[in-house]
Amino acid sequence: MSENRKAAITGHPVIHSRSPLVHGYWLKKHGIDGEYGRLDVPPGEAETFYRNFSASGLIGANITVPHKETAAAACDWLDDAAKTMGAANTIWLDEDGRLCGANTDWLGFLGNLDQLAPGWDVEPGTAVVLGAGGAARAVVFALLSRNFKAVHIVNRTIEKAQKIAGEFGSKTIAHGWDKLGELLGKADLLVNTTSLGMTGKQPLEIDLSPLPGTALVTDAVYAPLETDLLKQAAARGNPTVDGLGMLLHQAVPAFERWFSVRPQVDDELRGLIVKDLGGGS
């Protein structure tokens, strides 16, 4: 590639984002003349920034909180996932200068499980999703794309869960936290999308005793890499998958879009991020 192409992670704050490590690894591995940096966009400037994205000097960007909805609203074209979720985490300029947006968070979720728990969706049954934010929306979209029969959304504020369930149709059912024990008893998959259990946040305190021993447990949180939920699940023999791969796999289609090479999520990349998280080599 002859010209230097620049992309970045945008949001507020972005100082702790690991996306530059991920994309930087792939740029170096494929010998691409490109850059990927961090660009903090204050909330008061976000709408103007994304509407005038062509003036940024970037060929594309990732978007993190709290700007995913703002970026989507600024786009001239959105893929089906971004339309459905009302949020974009990847944007680029097409040949005509139009701002295009996609949501790849759901692909990150699927790519992670496909890689680390192959066959997890051979018999798509019942899933329990904890939380009702943007990550939950992406997970619900992903599970319905793999034909799960029922997706139960559990949230302390039931109205938020009801909003997502109402958008995604009859296979999605909203519940308050008081129903969790009953729901765990029939779950084939348990997904935590809340920030509970994340470093510096309140712990996620749930009783897994009703959960079938065959149920897969996964967490969108990746700092710490092994959350208390995953430790508890592994200790009782459940298969588990950590959340780091969701970050890595959601970046694949963005990199391919900007730099015309489809990268791989390999052990070396995973090791690089684990080391940065303080997990050793």
Rank of each mutant, 00 (worst) to 15 (best):
V128P: 08
D114I: 13
N112P: 08
G125S: 12
V128F: 05
D105R: 10
V128M: 02
G125N: 11
L130D: 05
R98S: 07
C100T: 07
E123V: 15
G101M: 06
G125R: 13
G97M: 04
W106I: 05
E123K: 15
G108D: 00
D121Q: 03
P118Y: 06
D114T: 15
R98G: 07
D121E: 00
A117Y: 03
F109C: 04
L130I: 13
G111E: 12
L110N: 09
V122D: 14
G131I: 07
G101F: 04
G101P: 07
G101S: 03
G131H: 01
C100Q: 04
E95D: 14
L107H: 09
V122F: 11
P118Q: 12
L99R: 13
W120L: 10
G119R: 11
V122M: 11
P124D: 07
E95Y: 08
G119W: 07
D105N: 13
T104N: 04
P118T: 03
L130E: 10
N112G: 01
P124W: 01
E95P: 14
A127H: 02
C100V: 08
E123P: 12
R98P: 02
L99H: 08
G111D: 10
T104H: 10
G101Q: 09
A102K: 12
E95M: 06
G131Q: 01
D105Y: 03
V122I: 14
A117W: 02
C100M: 03
D114S: 15
A127E: 02
E123T: 15
G125M: 04
N112R: 06
D121Y: 04
Q115E: 12
Q115A: 08
L107P: 03
L110P: 13
W106H: 15
W120T: 15
E123G: 12
G108M: 00
V122C: 11
P118K: 08
L130F: 11
N103F: 01
A102M: 02
T126L: 00
Q115L: 03
V122A: 13
Q115H: 14
G125Y: 08
